[in-house]
Design a protein around this nucleic acid. Structure first.
Lengths: 192, 192
DNA sequence: TTTTGTTGATTGACGAGTCAATAAACTTGC
DNA sequence: GCAAGTTTATTGACTCGTCAATCAACAAAA
């Protein structure tokens, strides 16, 4: 029963289903049929809209990345001063939108995809570049020439905490994750 | 021409080939046939010795972990004082044995496997537990009650730097990776 | 009647694991 | 010393399942 204008709804449903499946199966070995079934349609329809499995994954990745970017933008808009903005970036990185277990699991798997797929690697580079330049913007005035090193450290620490969250059974604790990174930042800003 | 005593050689060859393949294909989607061919034998023989693909992967993971453990033990034996021992642990984590690009890539993929396979998760827990307790042993006398938090941070940071190394094209730079973590440690020991 | 939505059925490829068969190397009983 | 039997090494061919992608066909809007 074709209701018109189904395309965007179907696409969104598929992206959502993909993230959920990858997240809680913990692997990229998810079949198009499974994803499609979860999204309430046939696998043929999934192919109709996305063309290939890889495109489905990339769309899912783009979605995760843009949710994250939106959280950062939101947090940044409400923040005051360099310190405040840095804290906002870190907190946004562990915001509810991107720190649910499935999302973290999916993210980890997309890291792996990035080793294989050029387009995925490109997406990830965009994410890392954005994070880096966001951090640099507020770090430079505070720690001068050490900014690059600190930004690198914060980036790595965020990724590391993410991995742990994906591997720790039970629901990940975003409060303490954020605190850990914030304390790192604080110490880097005090010293030297 | 069956030379007797082939089993250990074959097993080792398969493990080595697995790590290499997973590392530079950047994915767990490696067929038993590919691994076997790389190790210079038929896929049937790989099954004969390991029984299943998962067992091959687990053996590879065990191998990676034990190489790492050996490097830590070695570094620790030559270290003096709490500070020296902590530094040794960090340096060993980025030692040549575990920081070749393929090994890092393989490690990242095994992280993913750990979400799916109980046995893999168990292995990873052993690694994390060992690292944690090693760190705690020398951290407690230096930072007292803050030891647990610092150990957590160092662990996460090491993992994060690993991910970056796996995803950064070109040869990963272990010198600067170690320095980054060491500076983190240093700062944590000075402060508070 | 053309466009948009939708699916069941099918294809074609690939891959894990099994099996039967072959052969060299050791063991044993004489 | 050696024939007969056993264990270990090894593979090509095969089975059985799965899965991405395609297609033909049907249904409802426009």
């Amino acid at each position: 029963m074709p209701k018109l204008g189904a395309e965007p709804i179907r696409r969104a449903a598929l992206v959502k289903a993909t993230i959920e499946m990858v997240g809680d199966s913990g692997s990229l070995d998810v079949t198009v049929a499974q994803i499609a079934r979860r999204a309430g349609m046939s696998s043929a329809l999934a192919h109709h809209y996305f063309g290939s499995k890889e495109q489905i994954f990339l769309a899912a990745m783009r979605s995760i990345l843009s949710i994250y970017a939106a959280e950062v933008r939101g947090a940044l808009a409400a923040a005051e001063g360099h310190r405040g903005r840095l804290r906002a970036i870190v907190r946004a990185s562990f915001g509810p939108g991107s720190f649910r277990r499935e999302a973290v699991g999916a993210w980890l798997n997309f890291y792996v995809l990035a080793q294989t797929s050029l387009e995925a690697r490109r997406l990830l580079a965009v994410y890392q570049g954005r994070l880096h330049s966001n951090l640099m913007h507020d770090l430079r005035p505070l720690v001068g020439p050490r900014a690059a090193g600190v930004a690198r450290g914060v980036g790595a620490l965020i990724d590391g905490v993410y991995i742990r969250a994906a591997l720790t059974p039970g629901n990940a604790d975003r409060r303490s994750a954020a605190v850990l990174v914030l304390e790192y930042l604080e110490r880097e800003m005090e010293g030297r």
